[in-house]
Simulated assay, not measured.
Amino acid sequence: MNHSGPAYWLLKSEPSAFSIDDLARSPHQTDHWDGVRNYQARNFMRDQMRVGDLAFFYHSNCKPPAIVGIVRIVRSGYPDHTAWDPDSPYFDPKSTSDHPRWYMVDVQLERKFSHPVTLPEMKVHPELAEFRLLKKGNRLSVMPVDPEHWHFILAFAEQAASSKETRQR
């Protein structure tokens, strides 16, 4: 991955578990992105995410699912301590501090979209036909986003927000 500028990512969370508003209420609007229990998603966080990278915050398993804002990676991958806590829903007895199986990153809120970009809205744009989130069978909670998809979605979010403001005047 070329790291001359930030890389782009998408991080999925069910808002009932951890929402963008939860992040906004966190100290310094920063928290760790824990509980990822998929090896491919873990590898992205452990091996490729870097401080300064940007990620869409995506609310999943809600109506409608949507990209609701942007976060910045403020700490690169480190062992996910929730795997060692028997009281955590993310406990994994095979993960130890000597041999961590799972990783997390720290994220900080950059901004919340005034108009979330919903899954149905994304699906109608041919420019997003190759966007990983829209691919059949893609269930990953952490995925890279191609720069052209990042910029298209960002422009769409800004246009939707400005047309919403115009309608409200």
Results as ranks from 00 to 15, higher is better:
127 E>F: 12
60 S>A: 06
154 L>F: 05
61 N>W: 04
117 V>T: 06
154 L>C: 09
124 V>M: 05
149 H>I: 07
67 I>S: 03
141 S>R: 00
152 F>N: 03
90 Y>H: 07
73 I>N: 02
134 L>P: 02
137 G>A: 07
87 D>R: 07
66 A>W: 00
124 V>R: 11
73 I>M: 01
138 N>V: 11
97 S>F: 13
63 K>F: 13
149 H>E: 08
119 L>H: 14
130 E>C: 13
141 S>P: 04
105 V>H: 00
150 W>Q: 08
70 I>C: 12
114 S>C: 08
78 Y>T: 05
153 I>Y: 02
52 G>S: 12
82 T>Y: 08
71 V>P: 03
71 V>G: 09
81 H>V: 11
56 F>T: 08
60 S>E: 01
77 G>V: 02
72 R>M: 03
55 A>K: 01
68 V>L: 01
152 F>K: 01
108 Q>H: 15
88 S>V: 14
91 F>D: 11
120 P>G: 05
54 L>F: 11
152 F>Q: 02
56 F>Q: 07
153 I>Q: 13
57 F>G: 04
139 R>K: 09
108 Q>S: 05
55 A>L: 06
69 G>I: 00
84 W>T: 11
118 T>C: 06
60 S>W: 08
104 M>T: 12
130 E>M: 14
119 L>W: 06
146 D>Y: 08
154 L>T: 10
101 R>N: 10
143 M>R: 05
146 D>S: 10
95 S>Y: 02
82 T>H: 08
94 K>R: 04
149 H>P: 13
59 H>T: 01
106 D>E: 15
103 Y>S: 10
111 R>F: 07
68 V>A: 00
81 H>G: 03
94 K>T: 12
56 F>D: 11
92 D>Q: 11
85 D>R: 07
128 L>F: 06
67 I>L: 09
82 T>S: 13
154 L>A: 11
98 D>L: 13
127 E>K: 10
59 H>C: 04
52 G>E: 03
50 R>F: 10
82 T>W: 03
133 L>Q: 05
77 G>N: 14
114 S>K: 12
148 E>S: 14
119 L>Q: 10
121 E>H: 11
124 V>D: 03
77 G>W: 01
120 P>D: 07
74 V>A: 01
80 D>F: 04
126 P>Y: 06
78 Y>Q: 03
126 P>M: 15
148 E>G: 10
111 R>E: 06
150 W>D: 06
104 M>A: 05
91 F>I: 04
121 E>W: 07
58 Y>E: 10
90 Y>G: 03
79 P>C: 00
131 F>E: 07
84 W>A: 08
67 I>G: 12
53 D>F: 09
128 L>P: 00
87 D>W: 10
119 L>D: 14
75 R>T: 15
125 H>V: 01
95 S>N: 00
89 P>N: 15
74 V>R: 01
103 Y>M: 09
135 K>C: 14
131 F>R: 12
137 G>W: 06
53 D>Y: 10
73 I>V: 15
153 I>E: 06
144 P>V: 04
89 P>C: 15
95 S>M: 00
101 R>D: 12
99 H>R: 14
86 P>S: 06
57 F>Y: 05
98 D>W: 13
